[in-house]
Design a protein around this nucleic acid. Structure first.
Lengths: 364, 364
DNA sequence: CTGTTAGCGCATTCAT
DNA sequence: ATGAATGCGCTAACAG
């Protein structure tokens, strides 16, 4: 069916090994035969068989990306980015969807090593530490977005403490004193870290922490709806809400729409993690950008480095493991407005006056 | 590093071939050794090496899905669905993103066959017909969502004529006479088909076709914005807009928001292809559901069938190729309202009164 | 620099 | 029912 190395060798009247050497460019062949073979191979339409090569070399040119889903915009971006990067390098991406589920993650992992993947980037559930640790001995692994505390894997994280700090500070600078926070589950790193950034910003500004303004919950729209209602029903409702739980954004928007709350006039809204439609929404939604694309790129960089560290036989480079942070970035659009020295929410009309603060960071 | 068949055979004091036969369950071994081998294999943690197996059998347990992007909600759903289905069957999904670009599609295709994929589901650009046709001889292929007219590949399509008809008829039944249509490029199947459905519904209702109400354009938000403005600026603007170009939806929503057009009071809006946030939006957006999940499932079904048709040596089953259609479905939410016998748009207050028409179809 | 030989892990044909 | 032998396509020792 397809033309093999043998065919090429035969056509060129050399041995298979010479053909192999010439085509893989090991420099162990004469310049001339090298060129000749390349030409003949091209003419014959020879394509090396990765399976056969893999059997011999133990490599597959396959790299896996394991994410929770494709609904989350950040994961979409990451998948697209990782695929693009890898393809350019001659690797194929194996995209897996783990659903943030322990069992699924575990199953997927074994399947992947069965297929002798050359590398793995995953958003860990954090519940398969032992397995991951074991796998890490055989294949380079980079954790993305979440850390698996039971392992000492190289990890690329968003700078959530900073992002939340940045966002909160922005709202404070706009004059907001009562800032509602809707944040993720506190048993996740990002949930905790974002809360901490919020707390720090308030503390720095000398604003007392008010527990009733904080709502933590699962990563689903309902969390936003519930949280938002809770906040709005407060005796003294917040003048701004920081939705640091991406999935919750939908719920918040629904509730504000249902209650005819005009954003940003009656309420400032700042969200976390961009989505394509945020800037098409009216008002365009201001966000803290977690840098999904950069995260993906950095993860690929780190993975590649470890992959050829391993290739060079320098151990699996498992020492010197470190954690990377991709800085967050504030993207000001039209959903936050400056508030007068007044204390209450629901004040009135003035149009959003964005401050000049556009902090951009990329400590890597 | 990992335990091989030889190890198992050795431990069981049988030959490798016996071990192989027992574990692959060819029924050519005694019940007893079969069980014994299975047990030993499990104890040793044996995992067959797909690479080695693949080299021998010419199969890889890899199935590729090639889509244009992951931004489009339908593609997300399809990717998730295909991955889930395949995983359950012991296949790994190779997700590729082609960007609706001829070159990328072509490159990807060659890489994929290099990897000896067992099957391929793709949304074709329609520009690599020759290549696809050639590949189809080696590997089962199913086209999804779009047809590649230069080939005679099995194809699973959405029933766009019916979907557009359904949507348009719905608006007509609500009393709308002037219905704007924003639709995709007319050099794509879906673009043409959706237009035709719209036309048919109008014709049936005895409503004269008005070209100024139709705006066709690229699959980007800008198309929606431009189209929507054009429609609203008409001397006699439509009382309803049917956005049959998924990507254009964002643009339309922006423009209506900017112009403070209250939906559905001032304008009814019907969109094509669902997105998670449509039902969280206020008003929740009514849609024509193209059945992304069903499309994916059907494609997988067809692919599997062809895959084992090929396995069974019954040719590659390339005869009896046919086209499948997954029926569209109207999902009524709150963005369309019944309009009085009046003729003009921008009439007024009455709340949406959904008709009882909930056509559901699944001709398969 | 090149040809010969061996073997990666497995399935399968041919013997028994 | 089982074992021995062969080869999938390729790379890498090992010799020349």
């Amino acid at each position: 069916m397809s033309v093999t190395l043998k065919d090429v060798a035969h056509a060129a009247r050399v041995s298979v090994s010479t053909a192999s050497r010439a085509l893989t460019g090991t420099g162990l062949t004469s310049e001339r035969t090298q060129q000749r073979l390349t030409r003949i191979a091209r003419e014959l339409g020879y394509r090396p068989n990765p399976i056969a090569r893999g059997l011999k070399t133990g490599q597959s040119r396959l790299v896996a990306l394991l994410v929770h889903n494709l609904t989350n915009a950040s994961f979409q971006v990451m998948a697209e980015e990782v695929q693009a990067r890898l393809k350019a390098l001659g690797y194929q991406m194996l995209l897996c969807i783990g659903g943030d589920d322990q069992q699924q993650e575990s199953d997927t992992l074994t399947t992947l090593v069965d297929h002798r993947i050359d590398g793995l980037i995953l958003v860990p559930t954090g519940k398969n530490g032992a397995q991951l640790k074991a796998l890490a001995k055989d294949v380079p692994i980079v954790c993305l977005v979440r850390r698996d505390d039971a392992t000492d894997l190289e990890t690329v994280l968003a700078d959530d403490p900073q992002g939340a700090y940045l966002g909160t500070r922005h709202l404070i600078e706009l004059g907001h004193k009562r800032i509602g926070l809707i944040v993720g589950r506190q048993d996740t790193t990002s949930g905790r870290e974002r809360l901490s950034g919020y707390v720090r910003a308030l503390r720095e500004a000398g604003i007392a922490l008010d527990d009733t303004l904080i709502h933590a919950g699962h990563f689903v729209p309902e969390t936003g709806a519930t949280g938002c209602r809770k906040l709005l029903d407060l005796p003294r409702p917040p003048s701004a809400i920081f939705v640091a739980n991406h999935e919750a954004t939908l719920g918040v928007l629904r509730v504000t729409a249902e209650r005819n709350i005009v954003i940003p006039d009656n309420l400032s809204l700042l969200c976390y993690e961009d989505m394509p439609w945020f800037e098409w929404h009216r008002p365009a939604i201001s966000i803290v950008d977690n840098g999904a694309r950069d995260l993906a790129n950095l993860a690929v960089d780190r993975l590649l480095q470890r992959m050829d560290a391993k290739g060079n036989g320098k151990g699996n480079g498992n020492d010197g493991v470190r954690e990377y942070r991709v800085g967050a970035r504030l993207v000001q659009r039209d959903s936050c407005r400056r508030i007068d020295a007044a204390i209450s929410a629901r004040s009135g009309k003035p149009k959003s006056t964005p401050s000049k603060l556009s902090t951009k960071s990329a400590k890597v």
